[in-house]
Design a protein around this nucleic acid. Structure first.
Lengths: 194, 194
DNA sequence: AGGTTTTCTTGCCCTATGACAAGTTTTATT
DNA sequence: AATAAAACTTGTCATAGGGCAAGAAAACCT
């Protein structure tokens, strides 16, 4: 019997799962802890798991040809931590995912995912929706990179994900927004002086 | 009986479909033609279809707050034309998709898609893979916007999709690459003089 | 607490790209 | 073919943001 206030119950409660389905799904997840700075995923490995974050912060990044890292995403409580491409295409990843603080996560492996995906209609509907939501966010950010000034991208992030601004270091946020840390520092100054 | 050289047979042949499955799937598609400049999808509408292009070129774009359009993708023979977000989340789209030449397409509607997706395991595996591939391309382009110079993004497009460079107007390619048409013209000049 | 490392800010100058405008070439239309 | 309309190029000048380096402030040891 799954406790009514189990973390994963809150994750799944917005979807159309029956109690019976949740009783099948939730026990498949395994609790794991990542200490601060630990790598949840490393470039070159093929991802065989994903996680939901119960506590802590993480970020994903890629390293470009000049050896600089570029943050591609940030993960906070309730977020799914997954490299969609590596997980589903069974390819070595280009991404690194790193715990920025101590993290507690709930993990599912690929085979179990497949079993649930093909076995439970609402699970695959929910999985598809989660992926499409990620796609949507990425597209929004991608269009903003072309259409908006860096300061507007910063303000949007501040508006929509203030917990990221408050908990992630400026240099990581800067690369995510496509500017240098120097520029982001100036953008902050500019904004606070208004 | 589906002809062995039916266009859709070539689309699906790379996946693990049995002949029986193909005989179920392919007849569900409906042939449609879009004349040049026709809108395949318009902002504000909820997308109830997707298409495979048998011939022609199309592009998708969003209009930003200043009224300028930004190309988000180009579609050529064999490509899937779909607004993933609108199609799966059943939301009004922000995108416009426009035929740049006369196009012949094969169309599937949402309800039929759902029937195949939930009914045929290999169909949903293939659908998921297609979506993840789109996600991958978007991410690549997104990281390139931050990590690479405009000229490198142009060269990459030229290398990977020469048919796009050859058939799509400079101004559309420019917004896709995140530069003005003026800049792209200079980039071309710069490259050809090397 | 004292020292070390990391994070953030600021100054100076530079570069890639944008804005605008005037040509030129290509394509479409009658 | 003649005309109009796009598409593309090029010039001049402006600007957002980058590169580098020096401090200041904060976080992290042991």
């Amino acid at each position: 019997m799954i406790s009514r206030d189990h973390f994963l119950n809150n994750i799944f409660k917005t979807s159309d799962f029956s109690d019976e389905e949740l009783a099948v799904i939730i026990p498949k997840f395994k609790k794991v802890a990542f200490p601060k700075n630990d790598f949840i995923l490393e470039e070159g490995k093929t991802e065989n798991h994903y996680w939901f974050i119960e506590s802590g912060f993480a970020r994903s990044y890629v390293v470009n040809t000049e050896g600089k890292d570029i943050s591609t995403n940030f993960y906070a409580v309730g977020d799914i931590v997954i490299d969609w491409t590596s997980f589903f295409l069974r390819n070595p990843t280009r991404e690194n995912i790193q715990a920025l603080t101590d993290c507690v996560c709930w993990q599912l492996d690929f085979d179990t995912f497949q079993e649930l995906f093909h076995g439970i209609r609402s699970f695959r509907e929910q999985g598809r929706t989660t992926l499409v939501n990620s796609y949507f966010s990425l597209k929004e950010q991608s269009v903003a990179m072309i259409a908006d000034q860096a300061s507007q991208r910063y303000l949007k992030l501040l508006r929509e994900k203030p917990h990221i601004i408050q908990n992630i270091s400026l240099k990581h946020i800067a690369t995510y927004l496509g500017v240098t840390d120097t520029s982001l520092s100036r953008i902050r100054k500019e904004i606070s002086s208004e």
